[in-house]
């Protein structure tokens, strides 16, 4: 390279300007488009862990319809899903299976911990077979409290997850 300080400064400034232009006009729209596509077509895994699964089923019903927000039907194969909704208590027998399911999902993937038992053990704080919180084995993105959470609370949790995806860097 040329050992001229003024030329170095000029090259540095030009590359800076080029970077911000590409960032604003090329990368950001691409990131926006990719995130927009991902957050409005979330496929949950069909893994029912415990009793919160009935409120998830009721949330898929016609009154509180989570499909209009982007959480689609949970009847696909594991290899094409992105969201793992941990619905309730995770017992010591279910925990290794849940971890295998999480590891088999392709990137990018997110986890919603639904219910008091998935957040921290809940009502079963002294049971011999219950894991005290699912964030001991998988990384959790959104916590939805309740026992069981109302479908409206679950919808708020899904919208929080969508806001998080909207801001994420690809």
């Amino acid at each position: 390279m040329v050992n001229d300080p003024t030329l170095n400064l000029l090259v540095g400034k030009v590359s800076d300007i080029l970077d911000t232009t590409i960032e604003k006009n090329v990368r950001e729209p691409i990131r926006f488009l990719v995130n927009w596509g991902r957050l409005y077509s979330l496929w949950p895994v069909h893994l029912e862990t415990a009793c919160c699964s009935i409120e998830f089923g009721a949330a898929s019903g016609p009154r509180h319809d989570i499909e209009r927000f982007g959480m689609l039907e949970a009847f696909g194969s594991l290899r094409q899903c992105d969201v793992l909704v941990v619905q309730g208590t995770v017992t010591r027998k279910m925990a290794p299976r849940m971890k295998w399911v999480y590891e088999q999902m392709p990137e990018p993937k997110w986890v919603i911990a639904m219910g008091a038992c998935a957040i921290s053990g809940g009502l079963y704080m002294d049971s011999y077979n219950v894991l005290q919180g699912v964030d001991k084995i998988v990384p959790v993105d959104v916590y939805v409290p309740g026992c069981p959470p109302r479908p409206e609370t679950l919808i708020q949790g899904i919208i929080e997850l969508q806001n998080k995806i909207r801001k994420s860097k690809v």
Binding site: T91, R92, D126, S127, Y128, N129
Partner: peptide
């Protein structure tokens, strides 16, 4: 009903104390 790798004494005996208590 118990997990396969349960290695403690059978849980409903009176000398088994719950872990939280």
């Amino acid at each position: 009903l118990l997990p396969e790798d349960w290695d403690d004494i059978p849980p409903l005996r009176k000398d088994y104390i719950l872990p939280g208590r």
